[in-house]
């Protein structure tokens, strides 16, 4: 009897549903703890919670069968970008930051901008009409690559140029003054 119940749970996609709520809750919780942690004002703790947020989002991608995105999310954001963040935070003396209290203006500004984004998001979600059966979700890497280099080649190239510009800018900024 119990076996049957568990069997049904596994086969009926209930595990996926449960995992979705777990990962979604983790994403939101860790996201909040990044900006407003009641136990610690340490920037390193915030950065570590941001890493957890990124990892939970990778979990959400896996549930959507977007394995490539999940792997790249971990590889780029958790593995490289956040390590550099930590690197910089640890090298700076941030005692001042830790003592600083939340400012009313900053809080208000943050809430307003989050509200705006949420409103836009809700409206666009409401405008979408479910188109019959759900599309086949299989984020295979060759398909993704083909789409990037055919249908979405222009945005893709624009982003590449943007990254190149950012890279050149960073090199210029960090370079010692030429004689």
């Amino acid at each position: 009897m119990e076996m049957e119940v568990i069997n049904n749970l596994i086969n009926g996609g209930a595990v996926t549903d449960v995992l979705f709520y777990v990962f979604a809750a983790l994403t939101l919780l860790c996201g909040v703890l990044v900006i407003a942690n009641p136990f610690s004002r340490s920037p390193v703790t915030s950065a570590m919670f941001l890493v957890l947020t990124i990892l939970s989002m990778a979990g959400l991608f896996v549930l959507l069968h977007a394995f490539f995105l999940a792997a790249v999310q971990i590889l780029v954001y958790a593995g490289a970008v956040m390590v550099l963040f930590l690197f910089v935070i640890m090298l700076l003396d941030l005692k001042e930051e830790e003592r600083r209290k939340l400012k009313l203006f900053g809080l208000l500004g943050g809430l307003v901008s989050v509200g705006t984004v949420l409103a836009i998001f809700m409206r666009s979600l409401a405008a979408i009409k479910p188109a019959g059966a759900a599309p086949q979700l299989e984020g295979s890497t060759p398909d993704l690559g083909r789409l990037l280099f055919s249908q979405y080649v222009l945005p893709f190239e624009i982003v590449s140029v943007l990254l190149l510009v950012a890279m050149v800018g960073v090199i210029l900024l960090s370079k010692k003054k030429l004689e």
Binding site: V44, F67, F68, A71, V72, I74, A78, V83, L86
Partner: peptide
């Protein structure tokens, strides 16, 4: 048997640095 096996490996390996950084910190 992941279809993005290599990327998975690199992703996980890249997390290994946190152990050392956090230990140092």
């Amino acid at each position: 048997d992941l279809n993005v096996g290599i990327l998975y490996t690199f992703g996980i390996v890249s997390l290994g640095v946190y152990g050392i950084v956090l230990a140092g910190y």
